[in-house]
Design a protein around this nucleic acid. Structure first.
Lengths: 195, 195
DNA sequence: TGCGTCAATTTACACGGTGTAAATAAACCG
DNA sequence: CGGTTTATTTACACCGTGTAAATTGACGCA
């Protein structure tokens, strides 16, 4: 899926990735990334048109390495809607911490950079598809408490990265507590007469 | 509460405020603010040490003008815990759109600027107090479903600005729907056997 | 050996935005 | 009138991004 697999390109992506991860949202400078990749600053521009595109490429590379598609696809094998909801929350919820560093950076850049906003928007739209599918499964079971759109929006928000950040970083909830509580909230608000 | 009330200082704050509001998160440049305030760029530095402090002062000024304290205090007059929860959600939830422009800017700057992070953190800590008070009232009624801390964290997250932004901006929920649904979620997850 | 080419390096520079500094002007007040 | 405050103008240092150009080194190939 990547247009170029030259080893230095990969080295650069890895360097960017590590820097963003160690300092989420702060958006490392080009010179930092270059140094970490063992490459001159100008060399970065041989592989990426600008800083924003480098970061976008970093997220895409990350998705490739981790295989988001397969991961989220797993939840599709669940039989009942409720099982599927749980599986999706667990799959996505446990994926967030792995991508948080890069994701946060792109989220922050979104405010000032149109390309970053577009890239981030697409990524979140993909995620919403997963929410919609889980909600649909619930609805087919006749277990949905709300209209589909509202339910999808709500689940989408519950599973958003800022929500994860708020609970695990600001409130210092351990990851397991986050998963457990979000699952609880989702069930109580979305599933008909369920605890 | 403000240390200086010179008319130009106020004009500058108002200009910054309007600019941030019309373009949330993008962080207007000093020259833009100066132009809007009808003042030279350098004059800004006579009133504020730097850009970050100007924005921090802008939020404080805003809180003064709007009177957050009184607004949130109103929810304290409710008798039962449930009424109080509802009142708090409505008060704060309807306050968010008024401050969103400036708030978002500070949130974005938080990532790169320590002073902004500190100021924003304090503001959010204040808000958490309100959540804690509402939860406490619920608990006194014996109507709380969770331990106090977890419940407070959850309500705090539910009422966070990113959550509001996600639902009203990304999902284009009207403000009333936001209030109604958040109230619903809060009740279902926090209040013992309530719909 | 020599040529072309590709990747990367070095050096230099333009641009935009922040913040500092200094000299000047205008308004106000005693 | 002189002093103080407030703001203005101009200039500049600094930093980070992105563009450009000249240079080097390695590789394959005839």
């Amino acid at each position: 899926m990547s247009s170029d697999n030259s080893p230095t390109r990969i080295r650069i992506l890895k360097a960017a990735w590590e820097l963003l991860e160690s300092n989420p949202g702060v958006a490392a400078r080009m010179s930092d990334i270059a140094k970490k990749a063992g490459v001159s600053r100008q060399a970065l521009y041989l592989h990426f048109p600008n800083r924003t595109e480098l970061f976008i490429a970093t997220t895409k590379h990350q998705d490739e390495v981790f295989g988001v598609q397969e991961m989220l696809g797993a939840s599709r094998t669940a039989t009942t809607g409720l099982e599927r909801l749980d599986a999706f929350i667990e799959a996505w919820g446990n994926y967030i911490p792995r991508i948080f560093g890069v994701a946060k950076t792109l989220m922050v850049m979104q405010a000032t950079d149109e390309d970053a906003a577009r890239a981030w928007g697409e990524r979140m739209a993909d995620m919403r598809e997963g929410c919609a599918a889980a909600i649909e499964a619930l609805d087919r079971d006749g277990a949905l408490n709300l209209d589909r759109d509202s339910a999808t929006d709500l689940l989408w928000t519950l599973l958003s990265i800022p929500t994860w950040e708020h609970l695990t970083q600001l409130c210092s909830w351990p990851q397991e507590k986050y998963i457990a509580q979000i699952t609880e909230v989702a069930r109580k608000t979305l599933v008909k007469s369920a605890g």
